[in-house]
Design a protein around this nucleic acid. Structure first.
Lengths: 133, 133
DNA sequence: ATGCAAATGCAAATCATTTGCATCTAAAAA
DNA sequence: TTTTTAGATGCAAATGATTTGCATTTGCAT
């Protein structure tokens, strides 16, 4: 395993689950998905692993929360954002991001060094518009 | 009090504290700020009031969290974003937002109707840069 | 193979937030 | 103004996500 981490079964399983996921997963969701696999793994381990992965920048927590639980995604070093439907919570990825220029302006204005940004868009998806939900 | 709410001392105090604040406040910060004022008020009341205010759109929760506590700001119907220092959590308001054009593009691309967006920038503030914390 | 630092399981602790319930109070009705 | 009552509050206990202490296990460097 990269970044000076021991390669353990739990960590590989968690990475695998996150890799296959098509949406951000909570610690508990990861936990249950792994129960369905071969070897059980403790919920504390999931939390501890996710924290290590966060520190190593292997995973990220996007802005949206599922209730008050944090969700995690693999950091694929692609930069993108999510668009979330307020009605049905459909979540789609937006693959472009025009904010480099904006960040430069803010850096000049504030003297901060900007490291990252999080953006999320909320609206109504086409399906819900049709169904007037 | 507007929006069909009873005008109570707690609610007026909470509104006042939020109005005077120059940054998002957690429920507990609001609670302590009010202890310093004349009349004490219960922490549950702060939480309950904030929830009512949220539903009435009188306050909003910006994206950033102080640790894992939610922060609240008065909804002033101004649109702006926050810049947060990763080290000392200093939080400053950015008063301009260039994303209308971007939203239009995303609407065309996805057929979503976009209602709002949340953006947050993270970096290191000038003070922490100097102190190399 | 051996030793050790790091990882894990388990149970208990933590901490923000919520809730049940008895009491109180703003404001509508009389 | 007094009465009425739905909604607001205080208090203590419950909840639920996340963290932590500690004993045990396991990668992996020697």
């Amino acid at each position: 395993m990269s970044k000076g981490l021991k390669q353990t079964k739990s960590r590989l399983l968690i990475l695998d689950v996150l890799d296959k996921a098509d949406k951000p997963l909570t610690a508990e969701e990861i936990y249950w998905l792994i129960q369905n696999e071969e070897d059980p793994i403790n919920l504390s381990t999931v939390y501890r692993t996710l924290e290590v992965f966060l520190n190593k920048n292997i995973v990220q927590i996007p802005l949206m929360k599922d209730g008050n639980k944090a969700s995690y995604i693999l950091n694929r070093d692609e930069h993108h954002h999510y668009l979330v439907c307020d009605k049905c919570h459909t979540m789609i990825k937006i693959d472009f991001c025009p904010f480099d220029e904006f960040e430069k302006q803010v850096e000049q204005l504030t003297s901060f060094t900007i490291l990252k940004h999080k953006l999320e868009l909320f609206g109504i998806c086409p399906k819900c518009q049709r169904e007037r939900k």
